[in-house]
Amino acid sequence: MGRWAVVVQETEGVGDDRIWGAKVLAEVEGSREDALAELRRIVPTYTPQHPFNGRRRRLFRDGDSYLLITQGSMRDYHCVFKVWEMLWDSKRPEVQQERLAAAGGDSAG
Rank of each mutant, 00 (worst) to 15 (best):
58 R>A: 07
41 R>F: 01
78 H>S: 14
38 E>Y: 00
81 F>S: 09
12 E>R: 15
40 R>M: 09
46 Y>K: 09
37 A>K: 08
23 K>P: 01
78 H>G: 15
93 P>C: 03
61 R>V: 07
36 L>S: 05
65 S>C: 08
73 S>W: 11
102 A>E: 09
90 S>W: 12
3 R>V: 14
82 K>V: 04
23 K>D: 11
22 A>Q: 15
41 R>L: 02
78 H>Q: 13
42 I>Q: 05
42 I>R: 05
69 I>H: 04
71 Q>V: 04
21 G>C: 09
104 G>W: 06
88 W>I: 00
21 G>E: 10
67 L>N: 01
47 T>D: 08
38 E>C: 04
21 G>V: 03
46 Y>C: 02
72 G>K: 04
90 S>N: 14
83 V>Y: 09
26 A>Q: 09
29 E>C: 03
10 E>D: 12
60 F>D: 06
41 R>V: 02
10 E>H: 05
50 H>T: 03
69 I>E: 11
25 L>A: 13
8 V>Y: 02
95 V>C: 11
60 F>T: 01
73 S>K: 14
10 E>Q: 15
88 W>Q: 02
63 G>N: 10
49 Q>R: 13
26 A>H: 12
83 V>N: 05
103 A>V: 02
44 P>D: 08
13 G>K: 02
19 I>W: 08
98 E>S: 09
94 E>H: 14
18 R>N: 05
99 R>H: 09
30 G>Y: 08
53 N>K: 09
92 R>L: 07
17 D>H: 12
27 E>K: 12
11 T>W: 04
39 L>Q: 05
88 W>M: 00
40 R>N: 07
38 E>Q: 13
94 E>D: 14
107 S>P: 00
6 V>W: 03
6 V>N: 11
104 G>F: 01
86 M>T: 10
76 D>H: 14
16 D>N: 14
26 A>W: 00
86 M>S: 04
76 D>P: 05
29 E>A: 10
89 D>H: 09
78 H>N: 15
59 L>R: 01
26 A>D: 13
74 M>G: 12
26 A>M: 02
29 E>Y: 10
88 W>K: 03
54 G>K: 02
16 D>A: 13
36 L>W: 07
108 A>N: 15
4 W>M: 06
6 V>H: 05
55 R>F: 07
95 V>P: 07
7 V>T: 03
52 F>Y: 15
26 A>Y: 02
1 M>R: 08
38 E>M: 08
66 Y>N: 01
53 N>D: 12
19 I>V: 14
13 G>A: 06
3 R>M: 13
6 V>S: 11
80 V>K: 14
94 E>V: 00
104 G>N: 09
97 Q>H: 12
17 D>N: 11
91 K>M: 06
84 W>Y: 14
17 D>S: 09
44 P>W: 08
7 V>Q: 07
109 G>I: 06
60 F>W: 08
44 P>N: 10
67 L>P: 04
66 Y>S: 02
96 Q>A: 12
93 P>T: 01
11 T>D: 12
80 V>N: 07
90 S>D: 13
64 D>A: 13
41 R>E: 05
84 W>P: 01
54 G>N: 06
14 V>R: 10
102 A>H: 03
